[in-house]
Design a protein around this nucleic acid. Structure first.
Lengths: 157, 157
DNA sequence: CTTGTCGTGTCAGAAGGCTGACATGCTGAC
DNA sequence: GTCAGCATGTCAGCCTTCTGACACGACAAG
C-alpha cells in the first residue's frame, strides 16, 4: 500500500507503521467505499448521508432525529438540517408537534420511497463490486471482525 | 446492531439490509475508530488529518502536497491549507521554490517530530484497544480482506 | 412533590472539506 | 520541434459537519 514515494528511506522512527496498520487500512477501505458511493449517488443528486437517512427510515419507520443521527454516524444537528431539507423536498414527513415528549417520528413519503428505490440499486451495485473477490466465508469473517472492533472501541476504559 | 428502534416493523422493502451489510459495518467501524482517535488527539490540540500528515512525513520524508493528500484521503486543496498551518507552527518545512517542476517536498522539523511522538503513543493506544479481542490470525485475515475490498472498489468497470 | 439527571430538538457560530478554476511545468506522441 | 495530455500548487467560494449552548419533557431518587 501507499505507493507514493519510491524511496522508503526508513529512519529510526518507531511509530505506527502505515503499511501494516489495520487502522490505516480501515480508513482507506472506508474512504474508497465512500468515494464509490458518492460517485454512484451523484447522478441522482443525493449524498451518502442523504441516502443513509432514507434507507434507515425505510427499514425502521418512525425513527426520530437523534436515532437517525446515530444510525448515520453524524450529530443530531447535522441530521436535523438534512431532515429539514428532506421534509422540504417532500421525501419525509414529520408531525408538527410531538405526540409524547419532544420526539418527532419521521416517515417516508411515497416520493421518498421511490427516490430511495433508485438510489438503493446504485448502492447495491457498489457493495456488490466491493464484495466480489470475497468468498461468503470471508465475508462472514469480516463481519465478525468488524463487529469485534466496534465493540472494543466503544468500550470506555 | 442498530439497536435504535424496538419495532423492526419490516415492510416489504427489499433494499440493502443494514443489519447484514458489510458496507454499513465498515462505515460503523471507521466512524468508531475516527471518534476514538479524535478523542485521543484532542488533548494534544491535533486533528486526525493533522496527525496523518505528520505520520506520513515521518515514514516517507519529502512527500509532496498531493502525495500527502492521497495518503491522508483528502483533496490537494485541503492538505494545502493544513500544510500551510503546519508550516506556520514550525512543525514542517518546505522549500520556497521547487527544485524541479512544481513539487515542493515537505519535511518534519525537530519540533514536528516531537509533537508526532506524543501523538503517536496516543494513537497506538487506540489501535491496540481496537485490536484486543482479535487474534493475530484474525488480524491477518482482516488485512487481506480489507485490501481486497480496496482493490475491487478502485477498479473502474 | 421536588430535584437531579438524561435525552431530545433546535439555534448560532466556527472549522474543515470539497468543487471549480487557473497557471505552471513535466512527458510522450506526432 | 510542437503540441496535447497530465499532474501539480494554489486561489476563491460553497457546503457539510461539528462544537457550544439553550429550553423543554420524561424519568427515577430522595
Amino acid at each position: 500500500m501507499l505507493t507514493l514515494c519510491q524511496t522508503p528511506d526508513m529512519n529510526a522512527y518507531g511509530g505506527v507503521d502505515l503499511d501494516t496498520s489495520l487502522g490505516y487500512l480501515l480508513k482507506q477501505a472506508s474512504s474508497a467505499l465512500r468515494s464509490a458511493m458518492e460517485a454512484a449517488l451523484r447522478p441522482l443528486g443525493m449524498s451518502v448521508t442523504h441516502y443513509s437517512c432514507l434507507e434507515l427510515l425505510a427499514q425502521r419507520p418512525g425513527l426520530s432525529n437523534s436515532e437517525l443521527a446515530r444510525g448515520a454516524f453524524v450529530t443530531r444537528q447535522s441530521m436535523n438540517v438534512l431532515l429539514r431539507a428532506l421534509e422540504k423536498d417532500g421525501d419525509v414527513t414529520r408531525p408538527a408537534q410531538a405526540a409524547v415528549g419532544k420526539v418527532l417520528p419521521a416517515h417516508l413519503t411515497p416520493r421518498g420511497r421511490r427516490r430511495l428505490e433508485t438510489a438503493s440499486v446504485a448502492v447495491r451495485g457498489v457493495e456488490l463490486r466491493m464484495l466480489r473477490g470475497l468468498t461468503p466465508a470471508m465475508q462472514s469473517q469480516a463481519s465478525g471482525i468488524l463487529r469485534t472492533m466496534v465493540r472494543s472501541l466503544s468500550e470506555e476504559d
